[in-house]
Design a protein around this nucleic acid. Sequence first.
DNA 1: AATATAGACAACCGCACCAGA
DNA 2: CTCTGGTGCGGTTGTCTATAT
Length: 205
Amino acid sequence: MPMAPVTTKCNLKEVNRGAWTAEEDQKLAQVIDLHGPKRWKSIAAKAGLKRSGKSCRLRWMNYLRPNIKKGNISDQEEDLILRLHKLLGNRWSLIAGRLPGRTDNQIKNYWNSHLSKKIKLNENRNKGSEIQEPVLDNSKGNETVFVPKGSEEGTSKRDDDYNSTPCLFGDTMSDFHSAEALNWEWMSQFFEINESWDYFAYDII
DNA sequence: AATATAGACAACCGCACCAGA
DNA sequence: CTCTGGTGCGGTTGTCTATAT
C-alpha cells in the first residue's frame, strides 16, 4: 500500500515526492497514451501532477510501461544477468536490454540484493585457494563462473565509450546494441555452446 | 505482543550527453 | 561556439514487509 506522497517545496514550486498513488499513475498513463512518452516536463504539467518530469519518466520506465515483467527473476534470467554483468559490468540498461520485460532498475536491485552477496560469499570461500580470481557458485545450477580480473572496472556511464571497442558480437559495441540476433534464445544458445567464452570475452574488451 | 533486523524494491539525486536555439 | 532543456544512466537512499529475537 503506497504512502500518500509528501509535498515539498523545490525551487519555489510545490512538488510531490515519494511513492506514487494509483490516481497519479492513472493520470500519467492517460497523458502518455495521448502524447507519447516524451517531453516529460510537459507530460507532468498536462497530467496535472505535482511531479517533476524526471519523476514521471522514472515511474513510466520502471513501472507503468507496457510489457514490464513483474515478479521473481527466473534461474534463466539470473544466469543471463551474471554473464552479461561479467561482460558489461554495471551497465544495467544494457543488461536490461537483453532481458525482455525487465528494467534496469529491476536488474540493478536484483544484483545489489542477491547476486553481489552471492559473489562476496564465494570470494570469501575461495580466499587462499589457488584460483586467483573471485568465483561465483551458482547454487541453483551448480555452476562455477569465473570473474576475470578488471571486471569491476570500466564504470563509464555512456554507451559511446564502447563504440570504438572491439567486440565479439561485431566490430563495435554499437553492433552489440543493435544486434537483432541477440535475443534471449540466441544468447542462451551462445553461452551454452561457448563454454570457454567466459575466459575469452574479457580479453577483447 | 513488541521490538529489532534484514531483505526487497521504488524512488531520488547528481552527472553526463545530445540536440536545438 | 555557447547555453539550455530534455533525457538517460548508475549510485544511493528511503520505506515497506517479513522474519527473528
